[in-house]
Design a protein around this nucleic acid. Structure first.
Length: 379
RNA sequence: UCCGCCCUGGUGUAAUGGCAGCACCCCGGCCUUUGGAGCCGUGGAGUCUAGGUUCGAGUCCUAGGGGCGGAA
């Protein structure tokens, strides 16, 4: 196959590219430039797409003896990821930019260009597996190393995208083994720290960064009874489940910490309360996508406007535990499909804008963007 | 303008006259391809003021300041 290896400049994508070469593919390395302005991405151990990273990727490509290019996707990245990130926070929601990037950039803009240039697949260093069912349709599964498994952030991929994905690290036993392999191969990035945090926020100060993009107004922080307990500099800077940074002068009567329960940007109000009020067991999602063929139970019956109810494992954060649940696709008033997930056990800190990914065993069924999350017990 | 109770980090509270503790909060670290959460820390911050008793005072005494409460 002709394979385009996306090389971030980190260990994983370098080893993945190396494995693709070993597998006999015709590999070309490409690094995505996501910002034209130096200093607007996290650097050093933090970011994933800086100038230094492109140099690391280039050195790795050279070591592997493959052609190497840098493609500028800064425009698309700004429109589809950064601007979306800002708009979501403005609306009082909590976006997941990494998923947007996978959905719109790495496996969309990049993949489209690769296919147009005659490549058969895009190879990345994600820890996830693509299997084929009996009919040859792709299925997305968790990686062997559950500790590093990244199938959650790939839950947005569609069947068409999965058709062209190559994840050579699917069977990597551990991250340490990947690093060891990188060292053996003489890759200079073997000991490079993992990337984390949001790549386009240079110093990791998300609130400070948002404050420059969004007009924020001071407002009230109220508790679950409606009593004013403090004030904030802008409701958009908060997220459901947040504990730190509330700067409430007075502790709660019971001396327990308080968490953000909800954000109402229109009223510019933030509501806080005790941990138990964070528990939710019904999650409703919009913008559903299926990672491969939807399972038969998830197909909406035109007669009823709803699918069957089917058992799943629901995961609401990249490294959260999946919890048993029952899912159903229903048709909303606007004709759009909605995902309704009833959890067997409640979860805390589920913020609108985040992503719920559905699994059955190791298989990723699909995902939806969380629209609402609530407790079914009377409030 | 008589009597009683109270005053401890930013906040809420502990301490038979014997090292001022706990919680919230804040800060730092760990974790993490999102936000948060979680975990760790010898981290930050306090006895209203002035005297007195005592080997030793947050604690007892006196005066002052501040806050509650008392059918005249």
């Amino acid at each position: 196959m002709r394979v385009l290896a996306a090389m971030s400049g980190g260990v994983d994508s370098a080893v993945a590219a190396a494995r693709a070469v070993d597998a006999g593919h015709d590999v070309v390395g490409v690094h995505l430039a996501l910002s034209r302005m130096p200093g607007t991405l996290r650097t050093g151990s933090r970011g994933c797409c800086t100038i230094e990273d492109s140099r690391d990727a280039w050195r790795a490509a050279e070591k592997l003896g493959i052609p190497y290019y840098v493609w500028d996707f800064s425009e698309r990245f700004k429109e589809d990821v950064v601007d979306d990130f800002i708009a979501e926070y403005e609306a009082g929601r909590t976006p997941n930019p990494c998923m947007r990037c996978n959905e719109k950039i790495k496996f969309a803009a990049l993949l489209e260009k690769a296919l147009a240039l005659g490549f058969d697949a895009v190879c990345t260093g994600h820890y996830a597996r693509v299997d084929r069912d009996a009919d040859g349709h792709p299925e997305l599964h968790r990686a062997s190393d559950w500790a590093k498994d990244q199938s959650y952030v790939l839950g947005v991929l569609t069947e068409a995208q999965l058709e062209h994905c190559l994840f050579p690290l699917a069977d990597a036993p551990t991250k340490a083994a990947v690093r060891a392999e990188a060292a053996e191969r003489g890759l200079s990035v073997a000991k490079k720290p993992d990337s984390h945090d949001i790549c386009f926020i240079p110093d990791g100060d998300t609130v400070g960064w948002l404050a420059e993009k969004i007009a924020m107004e001071p407002g009230e922080i109220v508790d679950e009874t409606g009593a004013t307990v403090g004030e904030h500099a802008g409701a958009q800077a908060f997220t459901v489940g947040q504990r730190r940074g509330l700067k409430l002068g007075r502790p709660a009567a019971d001396g327990k910490p308080r968490f953000v329960l909800s954000i109402e940007p229109k009223q510019n109000r933030v509501t806080v309360g005790p941990e138990r009020l964070l528990a939710v067991d019904e999650i409703r999602g919009i913008r559903i996508s299926w990672a491969g063929r939807p399972i038969p139970d998830a197909v909406v019956d035109p007669a009823t406007g709803a699918s069957a109810r089917f058992p799943v494992l629901a995961q609401v954060r990249a490294h959260g535990d999946p919890v048993p649940a029952t899912a159903q696709v229903v048709t909303g008033d606007d004709g759009d499909h909605r995902l309704v997930v009833i959890l067997d056990e409640s979860l805390r800190g589920v913020a609108p804008g985040q992503t719920v990914v559905l699994y059955q065993g190791t298989r990723v069924l699909g995902q939806a963007t969380i629209d609402t999350a609530r407790s079914l017990a009377a409030v």
